[in-house]
């Protein structure tokens, strides 16, 4: 059981901070702006100001900073790879040379900057999921995509898919664990062997998992139909989104900050 339970996907820390109470659409736009900003800036001061902004948001959100930093852990390898790639592959004034490897001043600064950019990106986006419940996030995405309906973006359908996925992830993880145990009881081994062997050993896990998922999908579709579901047309929302004054202020601040920092640094 501990096997899968330790994974938390898009973990959400409930709270009632200023950031928590913002409209999810505001937070999504803010996150997009942050991403844009991080790709615009290219100087030490640019990164420093972006980092400062993130720190300020973390403070306002009342989320323990170590939780935000923990989001970096799974990315450690990628981070390391990014830094070292730039470190070794950038041409310029050499700091030292070892065998065919050459480390340059330009490489060092680029490596660090790239690493910082990636880390800030991850921290910024994880702030979104840390402060927004999955339902809110889905509602937010649906709300933002709604104007796109005219050009054929299926806003409601995408949001529905996300909701159902979120609803069934724990169910499917539990089921996967049960199937694994049942096959292990028949002598299956999910660890040993080479790559090919290991891929083959997954068949007794994956086949039933898929078969059951299709059966679930079938039954769920019938149940939804019985509950009067016929797509997004004419549907109302239980919890309506409210774009308030606080959101307007937050968005104005975000736009201003990105414009100033992005263009100047």
């Amino acid at each position: 059981m501990a096997l899968f339970k330790s994974i938390t996907i898009g973990q959400y820390i409930p709270g009632n901070s200023t950031i928590h109470r913002l409209d999810p659409r505001t937070k999504i736009i803010g996150t997009v702006l942050l991403i844009v900003l991080l790709f615009m800036v290219d100087t030490f001061w640019g990164y420093a100001l972006a980092a400062l902004a993130i720190a300020a948001i973390v403070h306002l959100s009342e989320i323990p900073p170590r939780l935000v930093l923990r989001g970096l852990r799974p990315l450690f390898v990628i981070l390391l790879l990014t830094v070292s790639l730039h470190l070794f592959m950038t041409e310029g004034d050499p700091i030292f040379r070892f065998w065919i490897v050459e480390v340059t001043w330009q490489g060092l600064s680029r490596g660090i900057m790239m690493g910082v950019r990636l880390a800030l990106l991850v921290m910024g986006t994880s702030l979104l999921t840390l402060t927004t419940s999955p339902i809110n996030l889905t509602d937010g995405i649906e709300g933002l995509l709604k104007p796109g309906k005219r050009i054929g973006i299926p806003a409601h359908e995408l949001a529905m898919m996300m909701t159902i996925a979120l609803r069934f992830i724990p169910t499917l993880l539990e089921e996967a664990e049960k199937i694994m145990k049942a096959q292990m009881a028949r002598g299956a081994d999910f660890q040993g062997g080479g790559l090919l062997q290991r891929a083959k050993s997954l068949i007794p896990l994956l086949v039933p998992l898929f078969v059951n998922a299709f059966r679930r999908a079938d039954e769920l579709a019938i149940a939804m139909e019985a509950r009067g579901y016929r797509g997004g047309e004419g549907r109302t929302k239980f919890k309506e989104l409210h774009f308030g004054r606080r959101d307007a202020i937050a968005l104005a601040l975000a736009f201003g900050f990105v414009a100033v920092v992005g263009l100047l640094f």
């Binding site: 292990m184 086949v207 039933p208």
Partner: peptide
């Protein structure tokens, strides 16, 4: 596990073989 066999709840949800034979043969082959 060969000596202590275990049938889980709703064991049919763990079937995977292409044929009945292949599925039942899984344990002995292992």
């Amino acid at each position: 596990r060969q000596k202590v066999g275990m049938v889980f709840q709703y064991p049919e949800h763990q079937l995977f073989g292409e044929t009945v034979y292949e599925d039942v043969a899984f344990g002995p082959r292992n």
